[in-house]
């Protein structure tokens, strides 16, 4: 089995759009749907699709390398989606689950149910609308960053054991960032917590091995920077 797979539950409007935007990634993409009609539709669109039952014991999923696999729960019915998230989390404590919700309320429930990341539809849409209206420049910047075609990117760099900046404070290496024309956005200290330490505030953060550095910059320059500091992209 492929080690790095992507599983999408459901094949509604949202799931369809997710599947098609993930189509050209190198990962193996599998769709699991509840209704036979959805399975057919997914197969018709060219995806590997299977039917599942919510009361399943999920033995089928054990064939995946669950440490590397990401699961997206995008069932149309929110209650079913929450149930699915809970059952998956219960069965596979390690797997990374991304779940879709419409409202903020359901997003909170999904987080409680054990989703690693919840995308709240209403929230995301309204954020976009407001950005369009009030922050058009940021909106454009974001689109550029997301678009794989443009050179400006946001990339995460994992610091390795022997990186020479380990032990430095974030504020100390300002000059290094400037030299390479990259802007540090945030640091995630996976040891402490998964929350972000934004560079605007946490300049006193001391860099540890396995910290993840999130930077914005041109692709080439980021790669050069990563190489210089001994980080892994």
């Amino acid at each position: 089995m492929a080690s790095d797979s992507m599983i999408i539950f459901g094949y509604g409007e949202f799931a369809k759009e997710i599947a098609s935007s993930l189509r050209y990634l190198e990962q193996r993409l599998v769709v699991y749907a509840l209704k036979p009609s959805c399975v057919e539709a997914a197969q018709y669109d060219g995806f590997e699709a299977h039917q599942v039952n919510l009361e399943d014991s999920w033995e089928e999923l054990e064939s995946y390398d669950l440490l590397q696999t990401r699961i997206i729960c995008a069932l149309d019915d929110e209650a079913e989606n929450i149930f699915l998230t809970i059952s998956l989390r219960d069965r596979f404590p390690q797997v990374r689950i991304i779940a879709l919700a419409t409202t903020q309320e359901n997003a909170r429930k999904l987080t409680l149910a054990g989703a690693n990341k919840v995308v709240a539809e209403l929230q995301t849409t309204s954020n976009l609308i407001i950005e369009l209206l009030e922050k058009p420049v940021i909106m454009h910047l974001m689109q550029d960053l997301m678009d794989e075609q443009t050179e400006l990117r946001v990339i995460q760099i994992t610091l390795s054991q022997n990186s020479f900046i380990i032990g430095d404070q974030l504020g100390d290496i300002e000059e290094l960032f400037r030299q390479h024309n990259v802007i540090p956005l945030a640091v995630v200290d996976l040891e402490m917590s998964e929350s972000f330490i934004f560079s605007a505030k946490g300049i006193n953060h001391i860099l540890d091995p396995d910290d993840v550095l999130v930077v914005i910059g041109y692709e080439k320059e980021i790669y050069a920077f990563a190489e210089a500091i001994g980080g892994e992209i």
């Binding site: 997710i18 993930l22 995308v119 539809e121 946001v154 972000f196």
Partner: peptide
Amino acid sequence: AQEIIGQLSREYSGNPIAFEALHALR
């Protein structure tokens, strides 16, 4: 909305931490 969500999930599959940081700001 569907398109935005689709785009988002693609980002999460590639550079999850990077985009999460970006969206937290956003």
